[in-house]
């Protein structure tokens, strides 16, 4: 059933927790040696999908094969081929970075010397050699995530699952993490990551699947998705209510968002001068109705609006980022 080239193959995955249907039939296919991103807001089913594919949770319905093995009937083989780096750093704060990696080495059946060599190699590669002998509790968020990722690589996995690898990180640590993830692919491994950031999926992934409400609502290369969503958004402030209402009518379904109280609305654009000029001419041929305009990068909300017809549950991208950062802080404080 699985193609030779597919590292991950899933069809019809369903999962409920009590009365809550988290997955409603997820189909995925990920080519070997590629980076695949599952993009979606909190509660879309990203983590549940990762947990099913990494054999931690059985699905209620559907089938999945990872590295050629069935995640239900051949769990053991799947586990030997994968590594999972979850949302919350799965390393011991009271052990040093080196001890954590040595322990992972021993647990993946490396000999003592081999484990030592592998730990040294990974510490070097993830720029943690200087902190190797310090307790992980003293690490910064970015260092901890890098160590967490290194711990997942000790056993030379074929398929690497990264669940929100940069949520809660500052921009610089985020960039460092991106570089690390890009480096993984040169080793020929397959990376399956989840994210709520469009730019992260854009930067890292060969293909992106957008999930919402437990379903894949769109899939394609970053370029394909951006074409459908448009990369940018033109926001207009209208002069009066009549002009505002006329513009809303005229744009119809192309309207990305609107705020009648502030006479403001947004419409998708590629950000090019020609397109912006054409839009302005279309909405305001007499050049009197539009007061001001701004061009923004499209946010996850815009992607969602365009793909699903509704926003990401009313959470702006900033708000989700903040609440996730808080969650990560809480987890680190435990």
């Amino acid at each position: 059933m699985a193609h030779r080239s597919a590292a991950i193959e899933a069809s019809g995955l369903e999962k409920s927790y009590g009365a809550v249907k988290v997955l409603r039939g997820v189909d995925l296919s990920v080519a070997r040696g590629s980076v695949f991103a599952l993009l979606g807001p909190n509660g879309a089913g990203k983590t549940t999908t990762v947990r099913i594919l990494s054999t931690l949770t059985p699905p209620d319905a559907g089938r999945a094969r990872v590295a050629g093995f069935d995640v239900i009937t051949d769990r053991r083989h799947v586990r030997r081929a994968i590594s999972l780096t979850g949302q919350y750093a799965a390393v011991d704060e009271m052990q040093t970075g080196e001890e954590n990696l040595l322990m992972m080495g021993r647990l993946t059946r490396l000999g003592r010397t081999e484990a030592r060599g592998r730990a040294r190699e990974l510490l070097e590669r993830f720029d943690l050699t200087g902190a190797a002998r310090r307790a992980v509790g003293t690490y910064s968020g970015g260092m901890r995530r890098r160590l967490d990722l290194a711990a997942g690589l000790v056993g030379h996995p074929e398929v690497i699952f990264l669940d929100e690898p940069t949520t809660g990180l500052d921009p610089r640590s985020r960039q460092a993490m991106w570089d690390v993830v890009k480096g993984l692919v040169t080793d020929g491994v397959t990376v399956f990551l989840t994210t709520q950031y469009l730019d992260e999926a854009d930067q890292l992934a060969d293909r992106i699947a957008v999930v919402d409400g437990g379903r894949v609502v769109a899939e394609g290369t970053p370029a394909e998705l951006k074409e459908r969503v448009a990369g940018r958004r033109l926001d207009l402030v209208l002069c009066d209510v009549a002009g505002y209402e006329r513009a809303v009518r005229q744009l119809g379904v192309r309207l990305v968002w609107s705020d009648a109280d502030r006479l403001t609305l947004g419409v998708a654009t590629d950000g090019g001068a020609a397109h912006v000029r054409a839009l302005l001419d279309e909405i305001d041929p007499e050049r009197r109705a539009v007061d001001r305009f701004t061009v923004h990068s499209a946010t996850l909300d815009d992607v969602f609006m365009a793909l699903t017809g509704h926003t990401a549950r009313g959470e702006s991208r900033n708000a989700t980022g903040e609440s996730a950062a808080e969650g990560a802080k809480e987890a680190a404080g435990v």
Partner: peptide, 10 residues
């Protein structure tokens, strides 16, 4: 914490 999931995935 997340460590049990990591052990289980091993």
């Amino acid at each position: 914490g997340g460590i049990v999931d990591r052990f289980r995935s091993l």
